[in-house]
Amino acid sequence: MAEQKIPLWEVFIRSRNGLAHKHVGSLHAVDATMALQAARDVYTRRGEGLSLWVVPSAAIVASDPADKDVMFEPTASKIYRHPTFYEVPDEVGHM
């Protein structure tokens, strides 16, 4: 039986105010309303959060893990970006 595929959504939950929404998993739903409803049922049965985001998985643009060296390696050599790179005499106190 060739049924039409139901789109995939990624689910994010804000566990409490002051924290960012965090990815918790994914689900299938035909539209945004049903995706929110399903996210509530599947991912928040025990007070996991105060706010839900659902995002069509197809809308996410991701970096390729194979490119991780090109993407992130250069920062490793830029130690002058960290406060500990700079010397401040003890007499100056906490800075």
């Binding site: 039986m1 049924e3 039409q4 139901i6 035909v30 539209d31 049903m34």
Partner: peptide
């Protein structure tokens, strides 16, 4: 459940 999945898809397509 087939008719439910079908109806939900048709509804979403109509709304879009």
């Amino acid at each position: 459940g087939a008719w439910v999945r079908e109806a939900a898809m048709a509804h979403a397509a109509k709304r879009a």
